[in-house]
Amino acid sequence: MSDDLWVYSDKVKNHFTNPKNILEVDEKEYDYDGKGQVGSPACGDMMVVYIKVENQKIKDFKWKTFGCASAIASTSVLSEMVTRNGGMSLEKAYEITPEQIIENLEGLPANKIHCSVLGDKALRAAIDDYFKKQEKKNPYKDEDVEIVCECFNISKEDIRMEVLEGATNFSILQARTKIGTQCGKCIDKTKKLLKEYVDKYYKEKIYNPEKD
């Protein structure tokens, strides 16, 4: 990753100046199977993604984004990632992390990561929407809501989603969810779960248990 806050990689620049797979028609005309939306104009970032699904694979992916250069580039690169080689399976697509998007962009400035990589989240919302439309249960989402933190009503699945969205250590997770800040009895279990998910999604590259 670049140390200089203002230098974007060439890959980001290319996707920003020449974005791929923008939805150019009205959404009704596009006839999508699933739609996901995250962010809002007031936050400075907003993103809508549309998917077409065939044989449990993403056949097509279109998007619209309001946001800064990295928000635009990250959605554009995501659209390539999931449609490459005949389309990504819904299962794999559901577990895309911001790290993977950033890797595909050949890095992002540190101050841009948490605010502008929303694509994975929007994509998960679109996959949820797809299953809802099909009136099927989403097999990639753990519907069994086992509560880990009673004080803040945080489930196992909530923690997994936070990890997928970049909460790769306990302090980040706690800052985002307040988990363990009341009675504290959930802390051990949370740390165990966190390690499990981080190992799974980040291949031990980022998580450093010593830090917590």
């Binding site: 620049k13 920003f16 100046t17 104009p41 400075g44 970032d45 309001f66 946001g67 800064c68 250069a69 928000a71 635009i72 841009k112 605010c115 502008s116």
Partner: peptide, 26 residues
Amino acid sequence: KRVEGESILLRLDLNGIRVSTGSACS
């Protein structure tokens, strides 16, 4: 309206026009 300041700034920058923005992002 409907567009974000930093992306305008950077697109102008690529055209050799130097401006600044009040967008929080930048």
